[in-house]
């Protein structure tokens, strides 16, 4: 089985994250790392490979040139190879365009299963997996809390707004997983050493032949919200509960 694990480079959530003047991510404002959710989605692929040795796991990432370090991390965890789509004209791509570029790459590589995170920790859009499925003409099974993978099908428990549901799809398919689905392994020394020798294919837009879409989402304005000002703060002297109730009543909240 050939499994594609999508990975994204994101700013570290531990630090402060900023937008630039045009409303795009300021990539220089914080340290960039592999998205934690992608370590988990890669783990889903690798744990299948653990018991099915014939499995090939390929990382695919679209991102700036320095996203190579993100891919090396994934290779050191155990992926076999990586495809890195780099093109300056892709900066600021919306989800529709991102999915078109990824779909073009996946049509070339072929796949049985595509595994993604349910949403990135920076954009939090969570729509690329379903867009990919639509473009590739396959089923999508998103937001999986658990994944059961077999030779011809995938099933799992999907979190919904009102609980969960179990669902299945025939392969090929695109799935996305939640943070509950897997605990990622740490790369061991051997993994880190062999990662340096694993192949990373770099592709440009010209290599993929993706046309520009007619419709796109554009940022009209981006404003840093004034930091939410602290309001009233009282030290409880026995009356604080009453004061709070009066505040809530004045705000018509009780």
């Amino acid at each position: 089985m050939k499994i594609i694990a999508l990975v994204k480079q994101v700013p570290d959530t531990g630090g402060e994250r900023k937008l630039d003047a045009s409303g795009l991510l300021d990539r220089d404002a914080s340290e960039r790392i592999i998205d934690e959710i992608n370590e988990r989605s890669l783990e889903v692929a690798l744990s299948y490979k653990d018991t099915n040795k014939q499995t090939e796991v390929v990382l695919v990432s679209m991102g700036p040139a320095d996203a190579t370090s993100t891919l090396r991390k994934g290779l050191s965890m155990g992926a076999d190879s990586a495809i890195h789509i780099v093109d300056d004209s892709l900066a600021g791509s919306d989800a529709v365009r991102t999915s078109a570029v990824l779909a073009a790459a996946l049509k070339d590589t072929g796949f049985d299963l595509v595994v993604a995170g349910n949403e990135s920790t920076d954009g939090r859009g969570g729509v690329v997996p379903a867009m990919l499925a639509e473009r590739l003409g396959v089923a999508q099974l998103t937001h999986l809390n658990s994944v059961e993978l077999s030779e011809g099908s995938v099933s799992g428990i999907r979190s919904t707004d009102n609980g969960t549901l179990t669902a299945h799809a025939q392969l090929p398919a695109v799935i996305s997983i939640t943070e509950i689905a897997a605990e990622p392994r740490f790369p061991n020394f051997k993994g880190i050493m062999t990662a340096k020798k694993k192949p990373v294919t770099v592709l440009s837009l010209a290599d993929l032949g993706v046309e520009t879409a007619a419709a796109q989402s554009v940022v009209v304005s981006a404003t840093a919200r004034p930091a939410r000002a602290a309001g009233k703060k009282v030290i409880d002297d026995g009356n604080a509960a009453t004061e709070l109730a009066e505040f809530l009543a004045a705000e018509r909240l009780i």
């Binding site: 529709v96 859009g125 729509v127 499925a133 999508q140 937001h143 979190s159 707004d161």
Partner: peptide, 19 residues
């Protein structure tokens, strides 16, 4: 919602719209 996002994603591709 999870369903709303998946539906919107597929619709955006199918109608060549944007999301």
């Amino acid at each position: 919602s999870p369903d709303g996002r998946d539906t919107a994603a597929r619709l955006a591709v199918r109608t060549a719209g944007a999301l």
